[in-house]
């Protein structure tokens, strides 16, 4: 499936619709002439056709997330790009514009079917106008439409693919952000980081968590890290080994790691199956872990005062 989409995309810029110089449409003289005439017609009637298109967009209830003015402004830009493609044969500018447009409208909830819808509407509006102009000469009309349609289809394709591509990119970006959010590296005080891990740890996530922590150590100049694994449902040998690697790597950067939330039963099991936990400092719960961390950092905990921490001399 993915592969297919890629194929379509790859064809767009060059092969299917060649750039101005080696324009396939220009090869056939009569077609090129017709396109020139067509472009002139679309330029002449720019105002009226643009308005007609915008009206149809509203009528079809497309782009409801945008104001009338916004729709008209974008419609104008797309219209001009559209005419430029017909004139030059190059979709590059349109493609860039479509990507930019997608980037702006995707966050506002505009959907793929709407984008396809408006481009097909424009094709329809223009075809109707051509029909009206050439209806007296049926043969000529046919030739005009023959020249117009392949170009129009390619334009529709370009816009749709740009949109889908941008949408995919944004979705990927969001997934990445969500993944990072699911393992926040928190700085609770100077030199102290807390990494609460929640959920299943697979090798890919383990790697990501480790990379994030190591960068966090450098960015925050952390000396102690508390990794809380209370929220990890299953701690088996694989997870434990990832943990050991994370601890070792942090040590190489000069930070001490305290692991909390590892129940004594699980610790026992891990030792039995041969996981080396001796290199790991473990403390029962997160609170205890933070206290131990502060002790290592040289902070004294004043148990009587509410939350008073004092740094030792």
């Amino acid at each position: 499936m993915n592969g297919k989409k890629k194929e379509v995309r790859r064809r767009i810029p060059g092969e299917e619709f060649p750039a101005a110089g080696q324009n396939a449409l220009a090869v056939e003289e009569p077609t090129a002439e017709l396109l020139t005439e067509l472009v002139a017609h679309l330029r002449e009637n720019r105002t009226q056709l643009r308005e007609e298109w915008a009206r149809r967009i509203t009528e079809s209830q497309f782009l409801t997330a945008m104001t009338k003015e916004e729709v008209f402004k974008e419609a104008t830009a797309v219209y001009d790009n559209y005419v430029a493609v017909l004139e030059t044969g190059s979709v590059e500018a349109l493609q860039a514009y479509a990507l930019d447009l997608s980037e702006r409208i995707i966050p506002r909830g505009v959907e793929t079917r709407e984008v396809l819808g408006i481009v097909l509407l424009l094709r329809d509006v223009l075809a109707r106008s051509l029909f009206k102009k050439y209806q007296g000469d049926f043969a000529l009309l046919n030739r005009v439409l023959d020249a117009y349609e392949p170009a129009a289809n390619r334009i529709a394709n370009t816009v749709a693919v740009s949109f889908v591509r941008e949408r995919e990119r944004i979705i990927r970006q969001q997934q990445e952000a969500i993944r990072e959010l699911s393992t926040p590296v928190l700085q609770v005080r100077e030199r102290l980081l807390i990494l609460p891990i929640i959920g299943v740890i697979d090798p890919q996530r383990a790697r990501q968590v480790t990379e994030q922590l190591l960068r966090g150590i450098r960015a925050n100049r952390a000396r102690v890290v508390v990794i809380d694994i209370t929220g990890v449902p299953a701690v088996d040998a694989t997870v434990a080994n990832h943990l050991v690697q994370t601890v070792d790597a942090s040590r190489l950067m000069g930070a001490t790691v305290i692991v909390t939330g590892l129940s004594s039963e699980i610790a026992q099991t891990l030792v039995t199956i041969g996981v080396d936990l001796t290199k790991m400092k473990t403390v029962g719960d997160l609170q205890g872990g933070i206290e131990e961390a502060e002790r290592l950092l040289g902070y004294k905990i004043c148990s009587s005062a509410d939350q008073g921490f004092a740094k030792m001399a």
């Binding site: 480790t210 990379e211 190591l214 150590i217 100049r221 790597a249 942090s250 190489l252 000069g254």
Partner: peptide
């Protein structure tokens, strides 16, 4: 001192540790 995050990551994957040698951030 100064082992970078990526280097630390690659080292542990390779299986290298510094043993008794101490480390610091910078």
């Amino acid at each position: 001192v100064g082992i970078q995050p990526e280097v630390a990551f690659a080292m542990v994957q390779l299986g290298l540790t510094l043993g008794q040698v101490e480390t610091a951030l910078d």
